[in-house]
Structures are given as C-alpha cells and as structure tokens.
Amino acid sequence: MSFINYSSREINCKIVYYGPGLCGKTTNLQYIYNKTNPEAKGKMISLATETERTLFFDFLPLSLGEIRGFRTRFHLYTVPGQVFYDASRKLILKGVDGVCFVGDSQVERMEANIESLDNLRTNLQEQGYDLDKLPYVVQYNKRDLPNAAPLSELEELLNPTKVQAFEAVAPKGVGVFDTLKAVAKLVLTELKKGG
C-alpha cells in the first residue's frame, strides 16, 4: 500500500523480494545497501537466525530521487524463503506495491522455485491481490554457477506470463539494480494509472 504524504511531499512504496530459500533475496538487498550513497538509504535490518537465514524479514529503506518535488522512497523487504515460514511470508506481503521473484538458476532448485512461485500466487490471492495485475518482475539469480539451467528453460517454467526478467549474479551485483529499477518503475507507473 503506497503512502502519499502531501505534507512532507513524499511518495512511499513497498517492494517485496520473494523466492525459495537461499536464492539470494537478502544478497540482493545487501548489494543495494552497499552500493547506495549514505544519504539515500536508511539502516538495513535483518531479522535472521544465528545461521544467517532470514527469520522474519530484511528491510531496507531507499530514496530514489525526486519527481516533481516529491521524494520517492521505497521500502524493500525480503521474505523468509524456507517453506515452513509461510505464515510470516503472508504478513510481509500485506500492503505490497510491487514484487520481485528471485529464482535460483541451479537445475536442482527448479522444484523449489516452482513451489515458491505457486506459494507467492496463493498468498497474494489470500490478501486479495492478483500477481498478474501487480507490478512484478522476475530475476534469475546465480547465473555464474556451472549447474545453472538454460535461460529458455527458466523462462518457460518461472515466467509463463512473460514479465520483465533479468539475469543476475547478486553477490557481484550483476542485474541487481536493473531488477530494482524495473520493479520500482512499474510501481510508479501503476500509481500514476491509479492516481
């Protein structure tokens, strides 16, 4: 749910990174955090287990600049990818303005990808959202790994609706900002349509 503040002249939006466990959602946010100017970002918060698995969410507030005198601020969230944290994932999707699905390119993670994508669609429906109507992009992460599936296969399995998709190597930053910019732009365009 976007929050337009006419008093402080701010447009605030929420973007959620979704995907199976260990696909690189947190790594996306960490890279964005590390490469962003201090004045454009707030503190990154990770609610994680002792083994650095996301327990509830990661959170990164980011400022992307001004449009017509309004500051655009994006709150980036990740969900915990592990299957048994489904209740938490549902909570984090509340009020979402845009979604990025991070798929793991490794062949052996294909089933986990498909399961997570189905779970995303179901959980959105429960909140009254339709994935096909939301600002939504896909990222294929871990493209540098030798066991990465061909792009055509990923597209067929994980992107049946042919939304914008990006190849990424999140720890090196490949594709990270392209993905973020694409989803942020879709969110603003959608807000404009609604406004």
Binding site: N5, K43, S88, K94
Partner: peptide, 29 residues
C-alpha cells in the same frame, strides 16, 4: 505497513524509519 506518519517528543536520537518498520512487523505478527 510500516511507514512513519507523525511523531512527537525525543525522536532525534531514534531511527524512526527502522522503528516503524519493526513495530509494524511486530503488530502484523
């Protein structure tokens, strides 16, 4: 959904953005 709307008192030393997001997460949970 975690966006700070208004505040009063000793907020200069607070990270209002983080506090807002975590509180909203807490309330949601």
């Amino acid at each position: 959904n975690g966006q700070a709307i208004a505040s009063a008192g000793e907020v200069d030393q607070l990270d209002v953005t983080s506090l807002s997001s975590l509180t909203a997460g807490n309330v949601a949970a």
